[in-house]
Amino acid sequence: MWSVVKSVLSALLGVQNDLKRQQDFSSGNPAAFIVVGIVITLVFVLILVGIAVIASR
């Protein structure tokens, strides 16, 4: 699970080493990547909203 999260995070930054990616694509479960991707995107949006709310105080 943690490795999926790590992979998605590095994908968001556009940084991932080749070996790791090969592993993900050969053994990973696509559904897990999609779910984790959506969750991380939501978390990202919430963090950004949070920063904006704090900054606007």
Partner: peptide
């Protein structure tokens, strides 16, 4: 960086 190009497009 082929992969990072793909990821950057998605991002």
């Amino acid at each position: 960086g082929y992969a990072s190009m793909v990821y950057a497009t998605a991002a």
